[in-house]
């Protein structure tokens, strides 16, 4: 670690800010527990992914510009969202002012813990004696290499499995189609609501078939979508964001 404590700009996706603030708080507390100086730039809104994915390249470029200015002063930008990190790190126009210097410093929280902090232990021991089924979210998986995608004939690795191995008592499993999309897809979930829900139902059935008590992932939007279907089904399976386990809150 450098002598000067590194300064983290906390990037909280708009949907996490508005709908699942507990995931943002867990992320903040986890980073603070590692002794980091974390700031939350108050002017942040949305990274612009919904604009980009709906063809508004002008609006998306403006969002990229905003983001690059807002986070310019931090050593690292860290977010509890593999999808928003994929968008900001992989799809911003490369010539956005300030972006070239910022881009390599944008991290999803698990990536940050593993690749920047190189953590070998959690800040405080966590005992979570439950079976969890890992949900690989597509953008984290295929754009950020969070695990080896099942389509690729490459050696298997999985970031989420590696970090959850630091949790005591936990049992990890994954569904049979280990990385099929849950059907959230941003505005897809409204544009194509029927396909979206059909995909989510199948994904939940896959996770449930493992006998797990929790679906655990690193992308809040997929979890929100599956959570909505689970509540409709009155199922016992629950979704958890990985930071909720790592900071010990889910164990309580």
């Amino acid at each position: 670690m450098p002598c000067e404590p590194m300064k983290i700009g906390l990037f909280i996706p708009c949907h996490v800010n508005a709908l699942t603030p507990h995931i943002a708080i867990a992320t903040l507390e986890l980073l603070e527990a590692y002794g980091l100086d974390v700031d939350y730039p108050m002017a942040q809104t949305c990274c612009g992914q919904p604009l980009f994915n709906n063809g508004d390249l002008k609006g998306a470029a403006a969002a990229a510009h905003r983001f690059s200015q807002l986070f310019a002063g931090y050593d690292y930008v860290v977010a509890p969202s593999s999808s928003c990190v994929s968008h900001t790190a992989c799809h911003y126009p490369p010539h956005t002012p300030g972006y070239a210097a910022l881009q390599p410093r944008i991290y999803e929280i698990v990536e940050f813990l593993q690749d920047v902090l190189n953590v070998s232990a959690l800040p405080k021991p966590v005992y979570f004696p439950h079976k969890v089924s890992i949900h690989q979210s597509c953008h984290g998986l295929r754009q950020r290499n969070h695990a080896t995608a099942s389509e690729l004939m490459l050696p298997y690795q999985s970031r989420l499995e590696r970090i959850l191995a630091l949790v005591d008592g936990i049992t990890l499993t994954q569904p049979q189609r280990r990385d099929e999309c849950c059907g959230f897809g941003g505005t897809f979930c409204v544009d194509e609501a029927d396909v979206s829900v059909a995909m989510g139902q199948d994904r939940i059935a896959g996770h449930a078939a493992t006998g797990a008590e929790f679906i655990v992932g690193a992308e809040a939007s997929c979890l929100m979508h599956m959570g909505g279907i689970l509540r409709h089904q009155h199922g016992t399976l629950r979704t958890l964001h990985i930071v909720e386990i790592l900071n010990g809150k889910a164990a309580a």
């Binding site: 295929r142 995608a149 389509e151 690729l152 999309c181 941003g186 897809f188 396909v195 979206s196």
Partner: peptide, 12 residues
């Protein structure tokens, strides 16, 4: 728009 951008097609 009939796509969640999951990216599995790119990989196969």
């Amino acid at each position: 728009f009939a796509c969640t951008t999951c990216g599995s097609c790119n990989n196969v």
